[in-house]
């Protein structure tokens, strides 16, 4: 499968990455090589096989419905680039 520069732009947007023109071009080149690698899969006969998400095939464990956490806002919010009044601040979200 081939990749156009608009594909690259679309993927970069989905991933919220900004690529300069130079980076885009390089990304497209790399992409083509990587796709050539992963396209080798297409030759494999996988008819009738169930996809395998995990090597271990056990069941999801369950947790008791108990509140185990206490308020750690002050400690955790020290890690934030921007906060005020207990809130994380981001540039204005326009709905």
């Amino acid at each position: 499968m081939s990749v156009s520069s608009s594909d690259i732009a679309y993927i970069a947007h989905l991933a919220r990455l900004h690529l300069s023109e130079d980076e885009s071009e390089k990304a497209a080149d790399n992409f083509r090589n990587i796709l050539a690698l992963i396209d080798q899969m297409q030759a494999a006969d996988t008819k009738g096989l169930q996809p395998l998400s995990h090597a271990i095939e056990t069941s999801q464990p369950l947790r008791e419905d108990k509140v185990t956490e206490s308020n750690q806002r002050d400690t955790l919010q020290k890690l934030a680039p921007k906060s005020e009044a207990g809130l994380y601040l981001v540039p204005k979200v326009i709905e």
């Binding site: 419905d65 509140v67 956490e69 750690q72 806002r73 955790l76 009044a85 207990g86 994380y88």
Partner: peptide
């Protein structure tokens, strides 16, 4: 009482970000 995947409380009306764990 607690969240879907963590042990934080789901109580309504708490101070902002006091019921958000790691």
């Amino acid at each position: 009482a607690s969240k879907l995947f963590s042990g934080s409380s789901t109580r309504f009306g708490a101070e902002p970000n006091t019921q958000a764990n790691i």
